[in-house]
């Protein structure tokens, strides 16, 4: 059996890739994909710990997180569509109207 540490390390790497992508990509949709990636790495950690403890609670939590992700995607894509209608762009840097 593979030790828990390897799974956590993999999750850490995936999370970092997601974070880098989130900040480098300028398309809102791709940023959103990266958020999903980070969310999944967190799920991986939970599942790995579930096995380490022999406790199903963490797996149940992952199930709930999956539901949460579905809700989040529905809203997020809704926002993207709404913004797109107004700006005809999915580039985040066009959304810099909040500057001081």
């Amino acid at each position: 059996m593979v030790e828990t540490s390897y799974y956590i390390a993999l999750a850490g790497i995936l999370f970092s890739i997601g974070a880098v992508g989130f900040l480098m990509r300028r398309s809102v949709i791709q940023m959103f994909l990266c958020v999903e990636l980070m969310l999944n790495s967190a799920n991986l950690v939970l599942v790995a710990f579930a096995r380490a403890w022999g406790n199903l609670e963490a797996q149940t939590a992952v199930f709930i997180i999956l539901t949460l992700a579905a809700a989040e995607v529905a809203i997020g894509l809704g926002i993207i569509v709404a913004i797109f209608r107004k700006r005809v762009s999915t580039n985040v840097d066009d959304l810099s109207g909040l500057k001081g």
Binding site: I8, A9, A11, G12, S16
Partner: peptide
């Protein structure tokens, strides 16, 4: 970040 997270993992 990746290095740090992987390090803490072990």
């Amino acid at each position: 970040l990746a290095g740090a997270l992987a390090y803490t993992a072990f």
